[in-house]
Structures are given as C-alpha cells and as structure tokens.
Design a protein around this nucleic acid. Structure first.
Lengths: 188, 188
DNA sequence: CTGCGATCATTCGTACTGAAACTTTTTTTA
DNA sequence: TAAAAAAAGTTTCAGTACGAATGATCGCAG
C-alpha cells in the first residue's frame, strides 16, 4: 500500500537510462525519479500553455480554450453544448462560461433546439468563422514551429509519450477505483 | 540543457503527417499533425491533473498546487515568497493566494523579514510538516504507479519527451520574441 | 394523462492562474 | 541628503476549471 511519502528511494532507477540519474533522488528539483520529473514537466507545460493563452487573448481577443472550442464548433458547423464538452475534454460547466464569452464577443450563437428543447445548438457566426480561419494555432506557434523543426521520428516520439501519459492518467479514473487510499492523512 | 539522445525507432506516424503546413485550420482529432496531437494530449493531461487535485483536496484538505508549495517550503525550512514562486514555477500573484489558503488552514506561517522588511519568510508549522510527511504524492499515485510499471527505457523516453516540450515552450518566451505575428486577426 | 426518472444546460461556490497596478521598503543616483 | 529607481509582496481583475445543486424538458411506466 505504499504509505505516502516513501517515494524517493524506491524507484529503481534509470540505471542505463538516458543520462541523468546517478544521484539519489531527493524529491526535489534536481535528480528526482521519473515520476517527479514528469510532474515537474507537466506543471511547467501547464504554465506555458496558460501564459500563451493570455498573449493570444491580447492579440486575437480570444484565449486558447475559447479558440479550441471555436475551432471545434466551426468544424462541425453546429454542435450541442454537451457534445462540445466531450469533444474538447472539458466539463459542461466550463463550456458554459467559454460559450458565454464567445457569444458576448459575437463569435458564436446559441439556439435552443426545436425538436428537443433541452439541447442548445451552437453555431459560429461569420466573424467566428473568419477568426477560426485566421487565428494562429491554439498551440504555441513556437512550440508548433519548434516541433516541426525536429526530426519526424522525434516528433512522433514526443506525441506518443504524451499520449502514453494521458492513457495512464485517464485509465485510472475510468475504473474510478480508490483514488487515494494510499496515504493516510496526517500521520497515523 | 538538451540531452543528446538519438534513438531511431520511428513509430507509425499519422498518415499524411507532413505537418499542418498546408491546410488552414483545425484538423480534427483523428489524423491531425503532431502539434495538434500534442495539444490535445496536453489539455487532457491538464484536466487530469486538475481532477486529481480535487480528489486530493477531499482527502487531505490541500490541493495539488498547495501541496507542491508546502513540500517546497518544508524542504527548505524557510523560504521567501518570491523564491518559492520561482521554485515551483508559478507567478508571485498566484503564490499569494496559495499561501493565503495554506496559512488559513494553519499549515504555514508568514513573517516579515527583520533585516529587509520587504521580504516575507514562509515557514511550515508542525501541522504543515506532518502533512507534508504523510500526504500522498502530489502526482497521481496511479500515474506514478503506472509509470513505474513501464519498462525503464520507456519511462526515460516519456520523461525526456516532456522535458523536450518544456524546453521548446520555455525557450520561446525567454527571447520573448514576437509572439503572434504569424496570424493576423479577423481576416484582412 | 400523470408522474417519475433521466438528460441537458445552467448557476453557484471555490480554487488556480497570470498581468497590471499599487504599497512599502531598500538601493541607487544626482 | 533628497529624489529616482528597483525590488518584494500584495491587490485587483478576468479567465479557466470542476463538482454540486437547479431548472427545464423529455421519455416512459402506470
């Protein structure tokens, strides 16, 4: 059961692995186990994504999440809010806020379904379509560029590694198993 | 920092992978370029991290960002707010909020510097130290476990790929070059 | 036809996130 | 030394994100 904080030494480690390993782990920044490295990387990535989103907003008047949604909408011409949520992997309640702002700025329009009045159909306006066609990639242009400059097999490796991580993370909460029974709080 | 590895291994890539140069926008989930795949993966990762954070909060009364900060504080015994921000890669304004909540719950204490009164020193309380020692990994336990179960070279590949992405993303906004001059807004 | 449960969107509350503006304090400059 | 600049933390503001609770609507059983 892994009691909480045993983390460090455990991880067998990266012996022959690519480079960085030798030293003994300390969950710190420096030479941690792969899991900690992955965590650090992910948080920095999150931060970058967020910062880029704000720059994007300055420039294009839409944030990255908004643009992602807009692209998904344009692509499908018309889509229900709930389906959109699934499509972009956000919760319905998050979608509402994004749609509110997108609508407020005149990029999309909502309309209640006629047949089934529960569902809300979302369409992009002309302005919305125009923006979708002209806005930069919702991903860092620079990351996209940087990525493109790498050898293709390196690109593939990166994409694959990320999907692997997603797999690992999503697998878990599908079989919504015991999430945290591993580490009791405040020391027994 | 780089890390020179060079592994052939090319894996199956998306069909006409050629990258998203040609087409205007939004290739869908399916056969998108690597950059889009990367983006999709990242957003799903972000979502998982967030969801885990909420479960962590239910269980341990701290969120992932809070725990990450707490761990960084405990490790250094005492640290200034600004340094902490750098350490965990968050902006100072974000740190303030996290510290507020951590302090409110009695896990850390802030005190103005005597020598230099601009500086705020943050220390963990006994409770904070106890929590840091008993809380589960700030990373999904399950991701950590899943990761551990993979072959070591796979782990290395994943960790490295992520660092590669971080490199690409952070490199950019250091030379804070033109962020978005690539795509003009709303159609000229 | 009535009512009950399921479904869809929304609202509400909380947390995280960073930029910009501001306050206080220290350091540098004139 | 007085004024200006720089530094540290905080506040303010807008956006993202989710779960829980609501409100509306649909579908189906009785």
């Amino acid at each position: 059961m892994v009691s909480g904080r045993d983390r460090p030494g455990a991880q067998a480690l990266p012996a022959g692995a690519a480079g960085r390993n030798g030293e003994a782990v300390a969950p710190t920044a420096a030479g941690a186990g792969f899991d900690l490295m992955v965590l650090r990387s992910m948080r920095r990535i999150i931060r970058c994504v967020d910062m880029y989103s704000k720059q994007l907003e300055m420039h294009s008047h839409v944030t990255a999440p908004q643009l992602i949604c807009l692209l998904a909408i344009v692509e499908r011409v018309s889509i229900s809010a709930g389906l959109l949520a699934k499509e972009v992997h956000l919760s319905p309640s998050t979608i509402v806020g994004i749609l509110d702002r997108l609508e407020e700025k005149g990029f999309v329009a909502r309309s209640r379904g006629i047949e089934d009045r529960r569902i809300v159909h979302v369409r992009a306006t002309d302005r919305g379509v125009a923006l979708a066609n002209s806005a930069p990639s919702p991903l860092q242009q620079r990351l996209a560029d940087g990525l493109k400059r790498l050898p293709v097999d390196e690109q593939a490796r990166i994409a694959e590694a990320l999907e692997r991580v997603v797999e690992l993370m999503e697998a878990q909460h599908i079989d919504s198993a015991p999430i945290l029974e591993t580490g009791p709080l405040v020391r027994p």
